[in-house]
Structures are given as structure tokens and as C-alpha cells.
Computed example of a mutant assay.
Amino acid sequence: MAGFETQGLGIAEALGLKAELKRVSPPAPWRWIAPHGPAAPDANIKAPWPDLLIASGRQSIPYARMIRRKSKGKTFTVVLQDPRVAPSNFDLVWAPAHDRLEGPNVLSTLVSPHRLTRERLTAEAARIAPSVAHLPKPRVAVLLGGTNAVYTFSEQIAARIGAQLANLADEFHAGLMVTPSRRTGDAQTRIIRDALKDKPAIVWDGTGDNPYFGFLGQADAVIVTCDSVNMVGEAAFTGKPVYVIELEGNAPKFRRFLDGVYASGAARPFVGRLESWEYAPLNATHEVAEAIRQRLNQR
């Protein structure tokens, strides 16, 4: 659920607000029937009700409905992602365009909200500058996800990716900044690290602060696996060429998302080569925050 939290916090920050974060974990049977049914009793969810509520995740939906009802509509209620109940239960619903959710109070964007800002990219790039100073340019950030319900990141795929990255270092004289995720897998990470051991490359070992945002700030181009809508969207926020590694697997809505990002001009499939192009950075966080601000002002 970390991705859901990131989206909500990013929108609150874009509004200039400091959010009070509340996590809900209802017991059975309430968790079984969410998003339908009543909210389970939770001592952490109580009046006074907020002016603005941003809810995300299936288990949060009964609480969002309850708060809107108990506040007599005074709490402006925003839900992120398809709530799986009628959007009319809330003041505003954001959903990614590939979900194809429609309604008069539904806002759809190609990519997802996040917590990245230009200021943070600059600051994080400066923070890690000494550790990447030895890498040649162009510098390429490589964001690795892993196996999920749709895609498979096998050891064979890791070997292919490792060989392609090594070729970037040889043929294009690129410096590589690689950050695996918790889902990448120890064996897959080791295969890629071994492929790059004699190349101008950094592979984050999981200790200390994650250099993810610093790598994005330092990069001239970004390579990202296709399994994470959030990672692809954050890469497309940079305005730098984004290459997507398509893993084994497919689902219609993920296909719609990738095709949409390709059509926007922000990204292209990764085929082992580097090119250069420009596009308008994608910033769903700003779009959602502005939609909330306008509707609050109308009140």
C-alpha cells in the first residue's frame, strides 16, 4: 500500500498542506466486504472531521463514506483509484485513464500522482553527486521492479537486461545507476550486478538511503521496468527520455497504460539502444491538486 500513500501525500503536498496520515486495517468480517458495507469501529477515526479527506485503497472506502456522511458533507472527500462503488459517494474521484472509470466527478490522468517535485530532484541529485562523479555521461538511471500479479521478472530476463545494460556501457559509453526494488529478487539483482561488475556502473546494495530520486535527478535518460505504473510515471515527470523494459506477462489495462505513455511521446520500449528526444513532462500530481483546489474554491 506504500504506492497509495505516496499518491495521497503527494497531492496534499502539492496543495501546500501537511497531511495527517491515518492507516486503517479493519478486522474480519469488515475487511472481507470492503469497499461495501459499513466501516469497522476504529478509535483512530473520529471527530473533529477534516475539511479535506484524501482516501486510497479498498479498505479506506467505508471510512471515507462514513466521514462524508457524519460531517454532513462538510468534509470534501477525495478518493484515489477506482473505489469499486459509485463515484457519486464522494466529491471527487481520481482514477488512472487505463481504468476507464467515468462520471461527472471523475478525473482521469495518464500517469499517477507522486511526491516528486523539481526541487526534490535537484536536491537529491546534489546529495548523491559525489558518489556518481566518476561515471561517464550520458548517465542512465535504471529502475528495476519485479514480479507481480501481472508480470514475471525471471532470472533469464535479468540476464537479458544485464547484457543489454553492459552493451550500453560499451557501445554508448554510458554510466549506469541501477536501483533494484524489494520485488526484483536477490538472484535477479546478483545476475545484473555480475553483468556490470567491470562496467562504469553503480548497483544500489539496499543499504543506506535509497538513491532512487538522486539517480533520476542525475540521469540523462531513464530505463524502467513496466510492472510499476508509479515508477513509469515518476520517470516521465523528469522530462528525460524514458525507456520501458517490457517483462513477460500482459493485462489489458497495463497494455492501455503503456500504449498511452508511448503515444504521449514520453517513453519508448527499450531495445538496447539510446536515443534522444524531448516531450512535455507528465505531472498528474499538479492536475489532481488543481482540480481539488478549484472545487474547494467553488464552495
Results as ranks from 00 to 15, higher is better:
residue 151 Y to H: 10
residue 195 A to Q: 09
residue 150 V to T: 14
residue 142 V to C: 05
residue 176 L to E: 04
residue 144 L to C: 05
residue 188 Q to W: 06
residue 137 K to M: 10
residue 193 R to K: 15
residue 160 R to C: 09
residue 143 L to Q: 00
residue 186 D to A: 13
residue 191 I to K: 08
residue 177 M to T: 12
residue 156 Q to Y: 01
residue 142 V to I: 15
residue 137 K to A: 15
residue 156 Q to R: 12
residue 150 V to W: 00
residue 145 G to E: 04
residue 165 L to I: 06
residue 155 E to T: 13
residue 190 R to M: 12
residue 200 P to D: 10
residue 153 F to T: 01
residue 188 Q to E: 14
residue 173 H to V: 12
residue 145 G to V: 03
residue 183 R to G: 05
residue 140 V to A: 03
residue 152 T to S: 13
residue 168 L to K: 08
residue 164 Q to A: 15
residue 170 D to I: 12
residue 197 K to G: 09
residue 177 M to F: 10
residue 200 P to E: 02
residue 179 T to G: 05
residue 178 V to C: 02
residue 144 L to G: 01
residue 143 L to I: 14
residue 199 K to D: 05
residue 196 L to F: 08
residue 174 A to E: 07
residue 186 D to H: 11
residue 166 A to T: 09
residue 155 E to C: 05
residue 185 G to K: 12
residue 163 A to W: 06
residue 177 M to V: 10
residue 187 A to H: 11
residue 180 P to R: 11
residue 173 H to R: 15
residue 189 T to R: 11
residue 181 S to R: 08
residue 177 M to L: 14
residue 189 T to Q: 09
residue 150 V to G: 03
residue 144 L to H: 00
residue 174 A to K: 09
residue 177 M to R: 10
residue 195 A to K: 06
residue 194 D to I: 07
residue 139 R to C: 04
residue 166 A to F: 04
residue 166 A to R: 14
residue 145 G to A: 10
residue 157 I to W: 05
residue 139 R to A: 07
residue 138 P to Q: 12
residue 185 G to M: 13
residue 141 A to W: 02
residue 140 V to Q: 05
residue 134 H to M: 14
residue 190 R to G: 07
residue 188 Q to I: 13
residue 143 L to R: 00
residue 181 S to G: 12
residue 181 S to I: 08
residue 146 G to W: 02
residue 154 S to L: 06
residue 153 F to C: 04
residue 193 R to I: 07
residue 148 N to R: 09
residue 192 I to R: 03
residue 144 L to Q: 00
residue 202 I to D: 02
residue 147 T to H: 04
residue 147 T to Q: 04
residue 160 R to L: 13
residue 171 E to R: 14
residue 198 D to C: 08
residue 181 S to M: 08
